[in-house]
Amino acid sequence: MKFIITHIIHPLLLIIPILLAVAFLTLLERKILGYMQLRKGPNVVGPFGLLQPIADGVKLFIKEPIHPVLASPLMFNATPIMALSIALLMWAPIPLPHSLTELNMGMLFILAFSSLSVYAVMGAGWASNSKYALIGAIRAIAQTISYEVSLGLVLLGVVLLVGGFSLQTFLYAQEKMSLIWFTWPLCLMWFISTIAETNRTPFDLVEGESELVSGFNVEYAAGPFALFFLAEYTNILLMNSISVILFFGSEGVLNSEMSTWSLALKTCALATCFLWIRATLPRYRYDQLMHLTWESFLPLALGFVIITYMVLLMTAGIPPLD
């Protein structure tokens, strides 16, 4: 019985709300994009179009999944599953404020698995045996490799301040004040890198709607496509909640009833920023994308690691001012 509770019920209690949130995030996106472009967005299915995501889901899953003849069958079908399961797996160590599993190296775990998630994109692009998909996959590889470097280095600066890779530590360290007030450049770099890591506009060269048709998932339809779609939006929510935990996590009272609410609200705000950015900015050129990370973010983040370390060394002897 205990096994069933810990291994099936608990994960499901985490997974189902996430998937629901993802469904409504897609609705939010379409609504916001609609109103920003002076139209209404979905408003027919249900009140204010609230049932639209469910109708979309039903439509996607009852269609016939198309399978290209020359695609590698195993990888073509395994990668969507891999994408969604990795995206959901990364939620395990997130403290909301209590996590499914408390990992000592939670932040490192998330970083490692978010880099694993690009394997799903790459496998999908390569296995579907199509030029557009392959180009999308190779773009995904280059982009993820580059932005992971800046993500890791930004993270290193914050980790030095906080003193540990565990996500709980971040919450405790920000009890008095959010980290954003004194690491705002790091926070900006982190936020932009998360946009790039989740392949959103203005960094959506992987999909490149106007150039590559749909990038790595051209050949996908119906169920497998829905899995990719879910994985992408799960990742957006995940990255935003990590940003909140890393930089905006000041509750004053850590274990109060309000902390979950505050986390969710801040995550929503950041996700809305993602949508706003999508509605506002045009797509980057590819070389600009690479220049941004290698020539701006990398040196800046390295400098901040050194500065943070220096400040820590300088103030090491000062007693706590509390």
Binding site: M105, L108, F109, L111, A112, S115, L116, V118, Y119, M122, W126, I138, I141, A142, T144, I145, E148, G152
Partner: peptide, 17 residues
């Protein structure tokens, strides 16, 4: 283990590309 996993994933990604 985690750092090695991270580095190795990136490296193998480049090899595959």
């Amino acid at each position: 283990a985690l750092v090695m996993f991270l580095v190795y994933l990136g490296g193998m990604l480049v090899v595959f590309a």
